[in-house]
């Protein structure tokens, strides 16, 4: 985790609050693309059950990979899911 002071602070912000936020958004967003199954529950139950795993994977990725690449990957993943959620909520309002 070497690097300049700014890099260290960004790594800390990325691995801490940002990964937590990303986990929440990815979990909620994935309920929109996961198959619901016959009982209509899989799509929203599986992300909740896997929540600790989603967080752990993102967390370790954010501390172990190169800072630039880790930031981009996590931000894209989050943005895609946030967009999915926004689109879904807007559709629901109409």
């Amino acid at each position: 985790m070497a690097g300049t002071r700014t890099e260290k602070i960004w790594r800390f912000v990325l691995a801490g609050p940002l990964v937590l936020l990303a986990t929440l958004i990815i979990m909620a967003g994935s309920s929109l693309w996961l198959p619901a199954g016959q009982a209509q529950v899989n799509n929203f139950v599986i992300p909740v059950v896997l929540l600790p795993a989603i967080w752990a994977v993102l967390f370790f990725y954010s501390v172990l990979d190169r800072l630039g690449r880790a930031s981009v990957v996590i931000i894209i993943l989050t943005a895609v899911h946030a967009a999915l959620i926004a689109q879904h909520l807007l559709q629901a309002q109409q």
């Binding site: 199954g37 016959q38 009982a39 209509q40 529950v41 899989n42 929203f44 139950v45 599986i46 059950v49």
Partner: peptide, 14 residues
Amino acid sequence: PALGQSPSLGSDLV
């Protein structure tokens, strides 16, 4: 089932 009206992976996991 624990969740839903028919058996599912999600329900079993919970």
